[in-house]
């Protein structure tokens, strides 16, 4: 089955302000896509819309040929989402939170324990599985949210500034988790300001500015840019690109 995520002429407004304006692209399976842009460019909003949480004012988002807002619950069972500041019920332990999400995603009860422990080990949280979520530090909460997102064999995982505040050792292990997930045919959509992560992990880069998609590079284009420009630096390129005035419509 074609499990592409298609976005066509996506527009999302808040009052008179268009937060996302006429954005179209497609993401195929096994892709690691980075979304960058200045503050207020619409990165988080785009991720929320793509993950079926905010219906666009106009345009269409389809996954495997089906509108994600028509088959919303079915679509959400196939994705994982990590918020910038994750929420958890304070009275539940890390393990219980994962059980809760596993139940919601319809993970087989018999396989839950095994899957939860495997993921908690991967994000280096296994020793804290019995701790209440209110006792976890922000970095640990992020790790727990990442572990939750990978429950139930998702096809796409959305990460909104997910690696901020995570210690370097855990970041290393999480990066491995992400790479393996993509290698196995999964899709990652990552919004971040840390360009080092983009450069090291992403095969594709989407640049947003004032809600508009201004550049969409695939792996070849990224490689070409690097080969054409000696000492190519993504940060300098982006600063230069985004500081130029936007051409009139």
């Amino acid at each position: 089955m074609n499990s592409k995520l298609h976005t066509q002429n996506l527009t999302l407004s808040y009052g008179d302000l268009a937060v996302i304006h006429d954005v179209s692209f497609a993401i195929g399976p096994g892709t690691f896509i980075g979304v960058v842009g200045p503050n207020g460019a619409g990165k988080s909003t785009l991720l929320l819309a793509l993950s079926g949480q905010f219906r666009p004012d106009s345009g269409k988002i389809t996954f495997a040929g089906q509108d994600i807002y028509e088959n919303n619950l079915q679509f959400k069972r196939q994705i994982g989402f990590v918020h910038e500041s994750p929420f958890f019920y304070p009275n539940l332990t890390a393990f219980e939170i994962m059980q809760f999400v596993a139940d919601a995603k319809g993970v087989d009860t018999e396989k839950q324990k095994e899957e939860i422990e495997r993921l908690l080990e991967q994000v280096l949280l296994i020793e804290n599985q019995a701790k209440l979520t209110s006792e976890l530090s922000m970095g640990m909460r992020k790790k727990l949210a990442i572990a939750c997102a990978f429950l139930g064999s998702p096809k796409i995982v959305f990460l909104d500034e997910a690696l901020n505040g995570v210690d370097f050792e855990s970041t290393f292990h999480i990066k491995t988790l992400l790479k393996n997930f993509v290698a196995a045919g999964g899709t990652i959509v990552l919004s971040t300001h840390v360009l080092e992560i983009i450069e090291k992990l992403c095969e594709r880069l989407v640049i947003l500015r004032q809600g508009k998609l201004i550049e969409d590079w695939d792996a070849q284009q990224m490689a070409l840019l690097k080969s054409e420009n000696d000492g190519f630096d993504l940060e300098t390129y982006l600063v230069d690109k985004l500081s130029k005035p936007q051409p009139p419509e």
């Binding site: 993950s51 949480q53 959400k76 069972r77 918020h83 929420f87 958890f88 995603k105 319809g106």
Partner: peptide
């Protein structure tokens, strides 16, 4: 927000 991202 959290529940919205889950299939609830």
């Amino acid at each position: 927000k959290w529940l919205s991202s889950l299939p609830f």
